[in-house]
Amino acid sequence: MKPVFEYTRGMLPEETTYCPGCTHGIAHRLIMEALDEKGLLGETIGVAPIGCSILAHHYMNIDMCESTHGRAPAIATGIRRVHPDKIVFTYQGDGDLASIGTGEIVHAAHRGERITSFFINNAIYGMTGGQMAPTSLLGQKTTTSMDGRMQELSGKPLRMAELIATIDGAVFVERVSLDSPGNVRKAKKAIRKAIEVQEKKLGFGFVEILSSCATNWGVTPVKALEWMRENMIPYYPLGNLKSPEEVK
């Protein structure tokens, strides 16, 4: 019997505190698998955000630093300047990166910092109890938009990947989804490419990962994946927006 799938040694044995069916677990694992396959676990420094994944450094088997809310790209910038040869990435949710940390992410991309940001977009504030995020969809009911998000009041959801792709310093931008085994496999390819961009010192990399939040959406984990497919993917189209020749 040959192994087809074994849990990566990039993840520590500790069990996660995420809700059942939370796709954070899949996203953590994909990044760690990609780093492990490249033999970079000992060469990587990650920056964890504020949000549900605040304890990511308890689960990822690499050196990590905790950051203040939204400021992960600024802290990663500092780490990059001190360690020019390490792989440096941030792992941020949508409340962190697309709301309070919009300035940091835009300017990290604008300076062309050689870091990679993994952006987990689940269209809601998870940890604080399901409030409306900038990425919540029109009509989506949250604890702060009880009748559904209204455009007149809150505008339309923010498409971060498209926003970052307009900045010259960002050289690799892709949006992937974790709604099905096929898309999870594609997501891992994008993550590998983003890490390659950094290995080759090409510039700023950004991978938006559409994710689910069964607890705050108020559905079962399986229904949450269906909701992603039916509602999120049409508004947040998947695919590569920008990629340098070297990693195509």
């Binding site: 799938f5 995420y18 069916g21 796709t23 899949i26």
Partner: peptide, 8 residues
């Protein structure tokens, strides 16, 4: 099944 398992 393993690819979709969030908990390893």
């Amino acid at each position: 099944c393993a690819v979709m398992c969030p908990d390893g």
